[in-house]
């Protein structure tokens, strides 16, 4: 019998990093910036948080003595700072210098993964651990703390209340972003910048500022996804390259949700579920079959792409100027 009560919460915690990543990428893409550096940015966000909390924990004789509030604030601040810097770098290259967005993004991903692995490796050496990983269980406990009543409510508590605060924050961010995009002037301007920067510019909107702001905020939200992965999902254990292809899944999720973060909430849980489905379906010891199951999220993304392009509804297409640099006096 398929055990939904254990499967669903696992799917959700798998989905949260994807949700944060895809919300961040959606904001970025709405401004016309195709930031393929998201996997790298999530990676940098994660390692920045790890660095912060590593030194904070190390300043105590026993990590158990840390202040839970600071234990959360320090890694979050470090994570936001790290991913903000990545976002700024991307903007400087693509908006100010008008470099090719695809190349810049891919370079940032490569850079971000290298950056993470370098500092990850350094910290592992510093900690003198025998395992190839950093373990920050005290910080993780602060991140993973759920409502005390969750345990008493049976399956309801398990499915809805068993998560750390970042999971709820992720859902709130996604819904807020969706609301801002569709119901406020800032959202309208942002959509206009991504659809037609010429038009937006002629209407008196500062295109460069919107691109910078959206991309940087998007990067910071995506960075939180990386932080959630380490601190909550992986229980505070950093291992080089453990983050895997989640960054790319987040970008696939943007397409899957047709650029709507509110759809992203459920879609990310679906992706999370598909991603771990192989653990819950008896596939024997055949590793190849497991890998086939892990392809499922990408397969459904391709199907969504086919369906949206067949239905050809204009609202479901990517922002029209996605991937293009804007220069006012271009002739």
């Amino acid at each position: 019998m398929f055990d939904f009560i254990t499967f669903l919460p696992r799917a959700v915690v798998q989905g949260i990093p994807l949700l944060l990543g895809s919300t961040g990428e959606t904001i970025t893409e709405k401004s016309g910036n195709l930031n393929l550096g998201i996997p790298g940015i999530m990676y940098v966000g994660a390692i920045s948080g790890v660095i912060g909390s590593f030194f904070y924990e190390a300043s105590f004789a026993s990590p158990k003595d840390i202040d839970p509030l600071l234990g959360i604030l320090i890694p979050v601040a470090c994570c936001l700072l790290g991913s903000l810097l990545m976002g700024l770098l991307y903007c400087f290259l693509t908006v100010t210098l008008r470099a090719n967005q695809n190349v810049t993004g891919l370079a940032l991903t490569t850079f971000g993964v290298g950056f993470g692995n370098f500092f990850g490796g350094s910290l592992i050496k510093l900690s003198g651990s025998e395992l190839p990983s950093i373990i920050l269980s005290a910080t993780s406990n602060a991140f993973r703390r759920s409502l005390p009543i969750a345990d008493k409510l049976g399956w309801f508590g398990k499915i809805f209340l068993s998560y750390g605060f970042l999971a709820y924050l992720a859902v709130i961010i996604a819904l807020t972003v969706a609301w801002i995009l569709n119901h406020t002037r800032v959202g309208l301007h942002l959509r206009a910048v991504g659809e037609g920067p010429n038009t937006a510019d002629a209407a008196g909107i500062d295109v460069g500022r919107y691109k910078y702001t959206a991309t940087c905020i998007g990067s910071m939200i995506a960075g939180l996804g990386g932080l959630y992965y380490v601190m909550d999902y992986a229980s505070g254990v950093w291992t080089n390259n453990a983050f895997g292809d989640r960054g790319w899944l987040a970008i696939a999720l943007v397409i899957f949700t047709v650029w709507r973060p509110n759809i992203g909430v459920l879609a990310s849980f679906l992706f999370g579920g598909l991603y771990i489905l192989h653990m819950y379906i008896p596939s024997g010891m055949n590793l190849a079959v497991k890998e086939l199951y892990k392809m499922l999220p990408y397969v459904v993304t391709i199907i969504v792409l086919i369906i949206t392009s067949m239905r050809n509804k204009r609202e479901n297409q990517p922002p029209a100027s996605l991937g293009l640099a804007y220069f006012r006096e271009e002739r």
């Binding site: 301007h189 959509r191 206009a192 659809e195 037609g196 038009t199 209407a203 297409q317 029209a320």
Partner: peptide
């Protein structure tokens, strides 16, 4: 902007 309505285009900016 093609995907916006007339009103949205008019108040843009």
């Amino acid at each position: 902007v093609d995907v916006l309505t007339a009103a949205e285009n008019i108040v843009l900016g």
